[in-house]
Each structure stands twice: as structure tokens, then as C-alpha cells.
Design a protein around this nucleic acid. Sequence first.
DNA 1: CCAAAAGTGTTTTCCGTACACCCATGC
DNA 2: GCATGGGTGTACGGAAAACACTTTTGG
Lengths: 217, 217
Amino acid sequence: MPAVAEHPTLSVVVVIFTVLEGDLRALLIKRSADPHRGLWAIPGGRLIPGESLDDAATRKLVDETGVRDVFLEQLYTFDDLDDVTAGGSLAMTHFALVDSQRVRLSDRTDWQPAWFSMRELPELAFRNEQVLAYALERLRNKLQYANVAYSLLPERFTLTQLQRVYETILGRELDKRNFRKRMLSLEIIKATDERQAEGAGRPALLYRFTSQKPTQL
Amino acid sequence: MPAVAEHPTLSVVVVIFTVLEGDLRALLIKRSADPHRGLWAIPGGRLIPGESLDDAATRKLVDETGVRDVFLEQLYTFDDLDDVTAGGSLAMTHFALVDSQRVRLSDRTDWQPAWFSMRELPELAFRNEQVLAYALERLRNKLQYANVAYSLLPERFTLTQLQRVYETILGRELDKRNFRKRMLSLEIIKATDERQAEGAGRPALLYRFTSQKPTQL
DNA sequence: CCAAAAGTGTTTTCCGTACACCCATGC
DNA sequence: GCATGGGTGTACGGAAAACACTTTTGG
């Protein structure tokens, strides 16, 4: 292994969140190579020279999920994730939000991508706990003042579905009436004229977001 | 000039803000080398292999101002600032807040560091406008929910001085009584038993911050 | 004694929260 | 007709915003 003065390893990492079965989940892959073989890790890879960070992050996201045009933004640049590589490392981390229904996980056998609940994480490689914790914090903050949830739901959805997404991310229950008042008065969603039945019970009105961008509230 | 597949240039850049004469100002240096010779730029330099980002940013800050132990945090990693260098570039930008009274600008003649009002910026190199605009946005947001102002004032200060700092950063006037109530009820500052006269008029009580860290409010 | 800056309370408005009942549909 | 989920309004409390006069000092 060469000694010093190497170029740092440049990697681009994307924390991909979804809401599934009442859980906030992150996509992880099982490492098939050293270091940290067999541990789970946030998807990422080397930055290709000439490629922009956004492009690299988008490429990773599409590779893993097949999804594009979702909320994706830079999170933080870590210089201390990889304690192994000589010459140092820089990891430009991002985070993305996807609707699990739109996702097609790549079925590479050496890769084994899978969703893990943020409440039951496996043993992770490369201090990835730190990255996930930071991503979660940012997501929770962001949810309070920007309509990022558009990325976690189908184009049309019921208010109850939207509320479940908020509750799952924030980790606490919300009041139905207050939630509806807020969403509608902020004009981040708009009723359509369609309805959807959820099992028994009165069919719910379907709504859609007024904007597919994370506008500030 | 070599063609492609080079390693990207890795630079660390620090937007250094201060409040001076009722203006929010950023420290800029005049470039003495190409590219963009003669234009003004945010201080920065190459990342030294083996050095952490925090260390590099701190080093730049101390080099330029002589100040340490102030508010300094990572802002964003840009891949598109330098449109010239082959092989691409990554600029890990940071921002810092300093008390102009504590600063000793380095007096290198090829460097000419100087404070510029954010309201009257000169022509800048490398899309630095974008970086400054983003730093200002983050600063304004941060000021609302974290006590970052500790870094912009002497250890002891009057409430009026503190209010001027807030007004300068936010770009609008604040109500004296409401401001005082808020600062004191949030317990981010504490009265000392000393006073300071400001020209004619009744001398003001001096206060100090209860914490020298950017605690969330 | 007058100019200059410091200091101080009350009222109103707005937003977040708490809370309970009727409605439409499937079975 | 009953179980299931959808949909609605009001009252309270705390924080932010609006607002004007008195106090202390220097000259």
C-alpha cells in the first residue's frame, strides 16, 4: 500500500429514504468486497472525473431504484468516513426521497439492496450510522418548512396517506383536523375531483401537490 | 494543458463575514495569478493531503484574520465554481463569523485582503457570487434559530450593539423592546455588572453570551 | 437644560394545539 | 345495520408584533 501524498478517494453517496408500512426506511447494500465486507452500507461509488456531483448522485439513485425526478439534495461532505484508505477520503453525501411504489430495486446478487427501518438498522460499514443520523435530522427539519413529501407519494394521494408520511418521518402522531387545515391553508396541495376507497369506509378525496419542487413554506 | 481524466482540484474556501459600520461584510482577496487575475475572490486554497476539512478551513481563517475559536461550519460542496481547470474541481465551501475588532488582516501585498459590503460587491472570480449568496441565505436562516452572533461581537457588549448586528444581518429594523425580551427570555445572554457609555446619553449595561457555542434556540 | 442613548409594559394578533361528532361506503 | 375510514369547527394559550414614554448621562 503506498504511503502518503496520495489523492484522496472521492466518493458520492446517496441516502435514499422511503416510507413503507409505517416505517421510514433507508436503502442499504451489502458490501461484497473489503473493507467491511459483509456489512451494510449506504449506496455510493467513486466520483467519475468530469461528472458533476448532481449527476453522480442522480446516477446512483437511478441505478439503485430506477427512479428519477425526485427530491435529491446534497447533505454534507465528510472527510472521516473511511478510516482505512491511505491518502484520505472525501465522501460527498446526498439524500433522496422516493415513493417505494415506483422503485424497482436492482437485483444484483452481489449487491442485495434492501430497505431497512431507521428503527432497526443492521451493523453498518464506514461510520454510516453518522451519515444516516444526520440525514434523518435534516429530513425532519426540512419537512417542517418545505414540501418535500411530494417525492414520497404517488401523484395523487389521500390526505390520510399524506398524514401517515408526516407522522412516520416525525415519529409522532398528528391531529387530523389540524394537519388538514395546515396543508390546505399553505396551499401545498389541491383537491382533485376523484375519490379512492380505502377498504371499507367512505372513499377519500384524492389530492395532488401544487408544486413538484421543494418550495419553502 | 493536460486533457482529461485528471484528478479534480480540491479546494477549501471560507466565506468570512463580519459586521462593520452597519454593514455585513465579507473578506475578499485580490487574485494576483491567472485565472481571473485582478478579480476579487473568497479566500481559499488547495486541500493539503492528510488534512481534515475542518483543519483546512480553520487554517485559512487563521491565516487571513488571525482569529480562531469562532463560528465556522461547512456550507456546501460546489463542483462548478472553476470553469477553467481541466479534470474538474471540487470546492468545499465554509462560512465563518468574526468580530472585526479582533481581526488582523494579513498585509501581503500580492493578496490585499479587504472587507466588502454585501451590498456593494466588486466583480468576483469563479462564480463566487453564487457562494456568497448562498452563505448569506444560510446565515440569515441560522440567525433565527441559533445564537451565532456570539462570534461577531466582543466578549462583552451592549444590547443595542447586539440588536444592530441582528438588524444588519437580517436587513431590517427590529423593535427594541421585543428584541430585548426575546434575547433575555431565551437566556442566550446575561447581564454583567458593568456599564459602557456610548457618546452622550445614558450608559448601557454590558452583557455577555451564556454560551460560546451555536446552541439551538 | 437640552440632546442623546438606555431602558421599560401592555395590548393585540396570529398560529399551534386540543378536542368530538357526523358522513359515506362496503359487507 | 354496523363497522370502517373520511371529513369537519371551535376554543384556548403562548409567542410575536405593535406601540410611547421615562431615565440617565454628557455637554
